[in-house]
Write a protein that binds this DNA or RNA. Structure first.
Lengths: 339, 339
DNA sequence: CAAATTAACTAAAACGTTTAAGTTGTTTTA
DNA sequence: TAAAACAACTTAAACGTTTTAGTTAATTTG
């Protein structure tokens, strides 16, 4: 069997009795061909089953129909972001190359290189750390940050208002009379952690409650689902063996939350009777969990959409305004008043 | 500010005082240059921050470092598959373009076209229906199926042994004395549904129990998380109002399972006291669910890995053997014996 | 020691597009 | 009615690679 080559512009041109330039014009709706010709060309395209070789197009025109997404891992939060990205990309006719940095800075830089080599039109990046060596991204595809910010270089970013979200959650616990509130944070090396810690501290300060560092635990210094969950688990174990353990716990991401809940159940504490709990990220299983958890919900889908939109603006050299989307505190049944 | 063009082979060649052919050879480890030259070229590459334009490479060589993945949606099962794909792709130095067909055949065909136009080296596809118009895939990128099979065209496939998995689950319920077992299936239009139904029927037959069609509900004829969950919910509602309701329920995917559990809780039935339950797909939240659910676990990660491997074999025109991976029944505490 | 082989290169064509710069023949304008 | 404008094309160069077919000088062989 001879492997049939895909038809090219040239084949279409021959079939329709025009030049390849005309076919290209028709293909790009350049409006420089007669109705009659357009029809003939389109028929030839359909007849031959032609579709454009995007590599050639990308080579010549210098921009591709691809964008890159680099996330630390495929956790449900980033998956929802991807959904939003997909939705918005349909509009711009972009496809998405998804890559995971596995929380490794080396791998992340490698991926920026690799995706740029693929001539992606831009990269949506959730960075693994608070810095982003500017030399490493010079001459590479334009970058829009998502979720996490960096300190050393100014890039457009679509993020959540973590300070406010964390503030609201903590404030709610305070209102219920809790004075010792455990805070479970992810890795100290990312901006979301810093911000969520800040919101917590702001809330305590607003009530003149002293911050006790022993109640702030970093549970996410590891990579991988199991390890993150385990981080949440350990955090709870640590704080509950304190001389004066917390009466409420706030876990600032999904995986930490699950690990924390696991620990609490294992310690035979009841939520919300013995301990109040606020988690992070809303997911379908919350609908069947017992108790239904009060959580801080992130607009992940919307973040994805807006990141794509920002990238598109960046490409058309419009001004891109970084945005901070509000977090929503969804009150359910995991918080009680302190006895 | 003048936008700096990325350096090309030509720039590197000039810098290193060699021809572009030599640079290309060095770049591709063709072993035709002296040690001294290789060193000079590599220094020039580093100095200029050169990285290959993959569009040009793809255009000339006819194959890209991209593969496509088309899944119906980004549910946790497919996300885990993506993890496996990512892991294996690192080995082959492939990047993955992820696209969702949203269970639409039209969109799926569109995506096969779009990805092929991107010159992807191959496509890993979880098809939305039992057929795959062969005319539509002729001349397109080579396809390896994953999870779901098609009837009208023979393609390599990496799938789970759904019949056996479903058989084992049903058999377990039968052993516990259940005679009326509700089965919640996804859309009848996909192979996994057909197979999971078959395993169920085989198990009943092996015990000489008549199949009651009223106990077999299709809950997944919709797309989207909410809709699928609702399908599971409705399925339970329907079977529980039967004159002789089931004493056990087997839900054959993750989303259906959650909807079903929600309905059962709403009806105030206790699992496993009032009703036994077996679900599908193992996920982190199962660790904190109450009760811990007995489920059929899919080797999603491994499926992803093997699909990439199969694609690579297909490319190097080795024989690709379709495989059916075993499903594992993980026994926890959601099944009781019938009274 | 001439011929053959080899090591280390280079020149140039090709991949399939897009696009700037023509080239027609027809219609409009002053 | 001659010049200008326009509609509807075509020609050919370029994008950045890979690769085939040389080329040159040094080395090996009979």
């Amino acid at each position: 069997m001879v492997k049939k080559k895909r038809p090219t512009l040239y084949d279409v041109a021959k079939e329709a009795n025009v030049s390849i330039a005309t076919v290209s014009n028709v293909l790009n709706n350049k409006d420089e061909a007669s109705e009659e010709t357009v029809k003939r060309v389109n028929e030839a395209i359909k007849y031959l089953g032609y579709s454009r070789n995007e590599s050639a197009r990308s080579l010549k025109s210098g921009d591709s129909k691809l964008i890159g997404l680099i996330v630390p891992d495929n956790n449900p939060f980033f998956t929802e972001i991807l959904d939003g990205i997909h939705e918005e990309c349909e509009y711009y006719d972009w496809q998405v190359v998804v890559a995971t940095s596995e929380e490794s800075e080396k791998r992340q830089n490698q991926l920026i290189d690799l995706l740029s080599a693929q001539q992606v039109s831009g990269i949506i990046l959730a960075p693994v750390s608070k810095t982003l060596n500017s030399a490493k991204i010079a001459g590479k595809a334009p970058i829009v940050l998502i979720d996490r910010d960096v300190e050393d270089v100014e890039l457009p970013i679509i993020k959540a208002d973590n300070i406010d979200g964390s503030f609201k959650a903590t404030k709610t616990l305070l209102k219920n009379g809790h004075k010792r509130i455990g805070l479970i944070l992810a890795s100290p090396g990312i901006s979301t952690t810093v911000e969520r810690r800040q919101g917590y501290i702001d809330a305590l300060n607003s009530q003149n409650i002293k911050v006790d560092d022993e109640l702030i635990q970093f549970g996410g210094n590891y990579t991988g689902t199991k390890a993150q969950m385990n981080g949440g688990y350990q955090a709870v174990m640590n704080m509950m063996k304190l001389p004066s353990p917390p009466t409420a716990i706030f876990a600032t991401n999904h995986l930490l939350m699950m690990g924390a809940v696991k620990a609490i159940k294992e310690l035979q504490f009841n939520i919300p009777r013995d301990i109040s709990f606020i988690g992070f990220d809303d997911h379908p299983w919350q609908e069947i969990s017992d108790p239904p958890f009060t959580i801080v919900a992130q607009p992940a889908f919307e973040m994805g959409r807006q990141a794509v939109h920002a990238l598109h603006k960046l490409k058309s050299s419009e001004e891109v305004i970084s945005t901070s989307l509000p977090l929503q505190l969804i009150i359910r049944e995991s918080c009680g008043t302190v006895k």
